[in-house]
Design a protein around this nucleic acid. Structure first.
Lengths: 188, 188
DNA sequence: GTCTATACGCGGATAGAC
DNA sequence: GTCTATCCGCGTATAGAC
């Protein structure tokens, strides 16, 4: 891996763990093994590095979700697969985390990948839910957009509950809860 | 309001906006109008101040939730009232926000109020959901604990979606979604 | 491309006067 | 109780040598 790549990967880790305000160029240098001059040779500064790191993270997250959501199976099975896929729950979501950073949301450059990722995910799930409703897998009266928002929110909030508890269990409970509600397919 | 109180209130605001790492003693002093010496006279340091601020915030959040959840009406009405109560959505949840701060979750002193608040809220909602299931308001097969976790997670995740979008609407959608799922009362 | 040197203000706190 | 002075290392960079 090139020095440049190591810088980006290290920045991703640090942003995930400590957020944008909590991540210093010094820490990036030390953890990545790159020197001061090296870092400023490859990137104009902390902002540029964060931009690269966030964009890479967003692309990977979307690719991973798309792989699950466009796989084989019914709409319900694919959603369940997505929700139950293995996660490093106590680390939280690398995109959702950035949402708490005032400097990230205030910045067009840094915030755009986060905004787009969640917009895409909600749309993708809404389409899948609409498919499930059409196929009779879900209740006929279900609003796909609202339900998709609730599903994505449950995942994001599940991370919050798990971190608050210092225990991954509440995440699993929240997923069980939303799936339990989704699966009662009886019409209204 | 005493200087001490102003320091605590200012710290609450700053923790809410910027988190623990992003909040400096200097910023607290400037925004509260208290001097350096004054701050260190009342509190041993940033940690003590944050502890007081977090504890006060946790107590108020619980009181506000309890007021909604123990009000008049059926279980379903009280839960709906809680979910639909007015919120400053784009500011996020002052407790949920702290969950992203590594220094907060790593500290017993700072993390305990957060942990206890969410544990209490999940239990409180689970009891109310169990009541609703017993009274036939909700589907008979519903798991109260899992459903409560999903409901709390939807709120917390709703904040994340709203902040990601820079728009309060996704929060409302997520709430609509979870309520839509909860309200289909047909047995499994 | 990478290194070392240098800069300057902030973060977090202590000391002691008033 | 509050103020000013002082401390020391970190955050965030720039300059210039190799």
């Amino acid at each position: 891996m090139s020095t440049r790549d190591r810088l980006v990967e290290t920045t991703r880790e640090l942003l995930w763990e400590r957020g944008y305000v909590g991540t210093s160029p010094r820490a990036i240098q030390q953890r990545s093994g790159a020197g001061q001059g090296s870092m400023y040779h490859h990137f104009a500064g902390k902002g540029e590095l964060a931009r690269a790191a966030i964009e890479r993270g967003a692309a990977e997250l979307r690719a991973a979700a798309e792989a699950q959501l466009s796989g084989a199976g019914t709409a319900s099975e694919r959603i369940t697969g997505y929700l139950r896929r293995e996660r490093d729950v106590l680390r939280g979501c690398p995109m959702g985390r950035l949402t708490q950073d005032p400097e990230v949301v205030a910045s067009a450059e840094l915030g755009a990948p986060v905004r787009e990722t969640f917009a895409w995910l909600r749309e993708r799930l809404a389409a899948l839910i609409a498919e499930g409703v059409a196929g009779g897998e879900f209740a006929a009266g279900l609003d796909p957009d609202a339900t998709a928002a609730a599903v994505v929110a449950t995942v994001q909030g599940g991370y919050v509950l798990a971190r608050a508890a210092g225990d991954p269990a509440p995440f699993g409970q929240a997923i069980d809860g939303i799936l339990g509600l989704l699966e009662r397919k009886d019409a209204r």
